[in-house]
Structure formats: structure tokens, C-alpha cells
Amino acid sequence: MHQLKDHDIQPPEELFGLVAEQLKINVEGLTSDSHESDLREFERLKDNSVEPPEIVTEKIMAAVHQQTSTITPTVSLLKRSAFRIAATILLLAAVWGIYTLVSTKDNKSPGKDIVTHNDVPIQNENRPISKDSLHDIVIANRKTFRASHKKAYSRNTGSRTHQTGRASAEGYDFAIKDNDLLGSFTNFNYRQLPDFLNEEDSRSIQVKTDHSTSITVSEGMVSMMKKMYKTKRNGQFTWKAKRERKKLLRWKKADANFFDKNPAKNPMDPFDLAEFIF
């Protein structure tokens, strides 16, 4: 069957002439007068129009009106939706604004009342005492103590940069700020005190600093530090702890008064040191 498609038979030649005559096709020329007159007749027909029946017109118009009436409800629906969306957004924005205000108030926590290293203002050089880190030993009240324990008792927060080193004592590693060992010892996290401050008996301990220097904290000093971290059941420092911290602050001031204000006094000189401590 596939091969038959290419098969064709030529018609007889005399038949071709008969068909041409029937179709009035001029073999020698395509145009003829009769052909042109027929074209003119057809051209006149194009101006001829016939009115459609009225019922058809009505039906068409009705159909058009129906479409437009369906379109109108969709537009109003979109408008109402847009209003609803806008209202929802406004409401959410209002809620967020209120929440932000409320949370900002809460963040002004009482913990900020604890003067950290970063909060101590720059003061007159003639009063170096108030700048020493031990000034940060605040006799914490209930509010401030609890606030300070909500987050880790951070000693190195804030934008101001401080020289921070590391030291270790009896396997307990801690940060030293401003090379101030005493200040660092008095600002441990209450919940993460080193073992030597929790032991019943006081003993001297070795402290190794960054500079490969190892000093000794005496038994008496360890005993004092333990007292400084005593708290009551409610987490507040005991009055003894507060008293010890106040005493330490006085010592710091006395040291600054003697050595900082009198540059000729040398703390590594035995005579000057004896004059101060005895």
C-alpha cells in the first residue's frame, strides 16, 4: 500500500481540452473580458448588507450585559480584600510597636545598676582611685544581684576595649581584666566559683598569669575571698560579704593614695612597702 502512493496515471490529452473549455480557462491568456465582468459583479456584492433579525441582536446584547454584571462583584471583592489586608497590617504594626516599647522598658534592667568595668565613667586623673576596677565591687542589693545572675556574670561585655589576659588558679581558668588580679578575683560568677573558694578550709593557692609569672594568694586572702561570696537563701550577699567587699575597696583606695599619688614610692622596695602595710 505504501508503494501505491507514488503511483499515478496521466489522463488522456483530449480530456484536458474538454475540461479547460468547461472552466472557461484561456490556455493562451489568463485574463478575458468575461472574467473581468465577473469580478466587477463580485465587487458589487461586497457592498451588499443584510440586517440580522432583531431577536439575534437582543440576545447578543443580553449576553454582553451578563458578562459586565459578573465583572462588577469581583472588583468590589478585591477592594474589600485590600482594605482588610491594610487593616491587618496596621494592626500588626501597632502590636509590634507596643511590644517593642514594653520590651525596651524591661531591658533597662536593675542589673545595669551594677557598675561594671565598662560603665565606670572617665574621671579626673587627680582622682585615680575611682577609676580602679575594685570600685566596681558594688554592694549588690537584691534587685541588682538577681539581675546580674540572669545572664552570665560577664566581665568583658561592652564596646570599650580592655586589656584582658588569662590566669589559672588550681586548674580554674579565668580572665584578668586590666592586669588587675584582685579585681578579677572578686568578680567571679557566683554560680561558677572555683573549688578553692568552696572548700571548708582555707589554704594558699598558686596563680599563674599570662606572663608566666606565678604568684601566691595567701591563706588569709583566700579566707577573705570566701567571705566575699557568702550569700543568703534569697541570693543576696550577706552583711559580712558586703563588709569584706567594702574593706577591699578601702584597701584599693589606700594603695592608690600611697603609690599612685606619690610616684617616688616604690611598691617593690621593702622600705616603702613596709611603710605602707605595717
Partner: peptide
């Protein structure tokens, strides 16, 4: 440093290193 008691300011220098 040996002072009259071991609870005084001397303890903050006791154990120091030069």
C-alpha cells in the same frame, strides 16, 4: 610578708613576685 594578723592589707602583697 608576716604581719600582726593575716587579715590586713598586707595580704594583698603577700605572695607577690619580683
Amino acid at each position: 610578708i608576716t604581719s600582726k594578723n593575716n587579715h590586713g592589707i598586707a595580704e594583698t602583697y603577700n605572695g607577690a613576685v619580683k
